[in-house]
Design a binder for these strands. Structure first.
Length: 200
DNA sequence: CGACTTTGACCGGCGC
DNA sequence: GCGCCGGTCAAAGTCG
């Protein structure tokens, strides 16, 4: 079973529910909400899609939540890099997000991560950081590195989908609730982040 | 004292 | 085959 993440458990004041039919539609919904909230820094998102990665440019913290949501969209900007590596046998979904973050490298996506490595990368002054999900039974990894063309941005690359809820996961129940379909996941959000109140 | 980070060593894939 | 490089391991250090 796949679970969505709660990107920003620090925010608990939410105003809206979203029920995702698919990723693109849900993102449009959120953008509409943000527009109505007169968000000071209007978020932008750009997708490129070819093989096995989602690449998105995100400028609002809560958008990182979507990174580990259970969806099977496929690849983007970083495909050239991923192709160089041998794929794992389970062929995980890989998603890369570019996020404006001048100060912090790691973004709060609601999950707990254990850092297990840091490597200098040829051709860039910025190291790459390696993290595993802290849950011992969860195989999800993420890599974080600064964008060489614009150091104000960080690339966060997720491999795999969590098999457990986030410590701050949010979902809603309904009569036709079906845990096997991510269409039934609901997210609560305010302008900036998702809340982590328990479902009723 | 447990959980997490740091960091050098190690390993394997890939290109030459 | 060899060396480079990205990814992972694991011991030591750090922090709450």
């Amino acid at each position: 079973m796949n679970y969505p993440s709660n990107p920003n458990p620090n925010y608990t004041d939410f105003t809206e529910f979203f029920k995702f039919d698919d990723f693109a539609d849900s993102f449009d919904m959120i953008m509409e909400e943000i527009g109505r909230e007169d968000h000071s820094s209007s978020p932008t998102l750009s997708w490129t899609s070819s093989e096995k990665i989602v690449a998105a440019e995100i400028t609002s913290p809560f958008q990182t939540s979507l990174a580990t949501s259970p969806m099977s969209l496929e690849i983007g900007d970083k495909s050239h890099e991923i192709k160089k590596r041998k794929r794992h046998k389970e062929d995980p979904i890989i998603q890369a997000f570019r996020t404006k973050s001048p100060e912090k490298d790691a973004l709060d996506d609601g999950y707990k991560w254990r850092k297990y490595g840091k490597k200098p990368i040829t051709g860039t002054p910025y190291p790459r950081h390696y993290h595993k999900c802290s849950d011992p039974d969860c195989k999800v990894k993420k890599k974080i590195e600064r964008d060489t063309s614009d150091p104000d941005y960080v690339w966060t690359t997720y491999e795999g989908i969590h098999n457990h809820p986030s410590p701050s996961v949010v979902y809603c129940e309904s009569d036709d609730f079906d845990l096997t379909s991510h269409n039934n996941w609901c997210f609560q959000t305010n302008t900036y982040g998702f809340s982590h109140s328990a479902p009723n």
